[in-house]
Amino acid sequence: MIRKYFLILIVFQVFQGYSQKFEELALTPPMGWNSWNKFGCNVSESLIMEMADAMAESGMRNAGYEYLVIDDCWQVGRDSLGNIIADPERFPSGMKVLVDYVHSKDLKFGIYSCAGSMTCQSRPGSRGYQFQDARTYASWGVDYLKYDWCFDEGQKAEAAYKTMSDALKASGRPIVFSICEWGESEPWKWGKGIGHLWRTTADIRDCYQCTFDWGGLGVLDIIDKQADLYEFAGPGHWNDPDMLEVGNGGMTPDENKTHFSMWAMLAAPLMAGNDLRNLDKATAEILMNEEVIAIDQDSDGHQARKFMDMGEYEIWAKPLAGGEVAVCFLNRTDEVWKLNYDWKKQTMYFAADVSIHQNVYKVKDLWEHKIIGKTDENLVKEILPHGSLLVRLSKLNK
Rank of each mutant, 00 (worst) to 15 (best):
Y137N: 04
S178M: 02
F177A: 07
G216Y: 08
G94L: 00
G195M: 13
R135Y: 10
F212C: 10
E153M: 05
I222E: 11
F131N: 11
W198F: 15
D148L: 04
D152R: 09
D166T: 05
W188I: 03
V102I: 15
L197V: 02
G191C: 10
I223K: 01
T200K: 08
S178Y: 07
K108N: 07
G154L: 02
L168Q: 09
K169I: 15
G193L: 13
R135K: 15
R135N: 14
A167M: 06
I223M: 14
F109V: 06
L107H: 06
Y208P: 04
R173W: 02
D143N: 04
V97H: 14
G195W: 09
S122P: 00
S185T: 15
T200I: 15
G172N: 07
D152F: 07
E158I: 00
Q130V: 05
D224A: 11
A134N: 07
Q209M: 11
E89T: 08
K105W: 05
G154T: 00
Y161A: 04
V99H: 03
I194N: 00
T119K: 08
T201L: 03
A167P: 07
C207G: 10
G216H: 11
L197C: 12
A170R: 13
Q226E: 15
S178C: 05
Y144E: 02
A138N: 05
E153I: 02
G154A: 02
D100S: 12
Q155W: 06
K192N: 08
A202M: 12
G195C: 09
C207E: 05
G215W: 12
W214T: 15
V99R: 04
Y208C: 11
T200V: 15
D206V: 03
Y129R: 11
L220R: 13
E89K: 02
P92G: 03
D152C: 06
M118V: 14
A134P: 04
D224I: 00
R90K: 15
D106S: 13
G128S: 11
S139A: 11
Q130R: 12
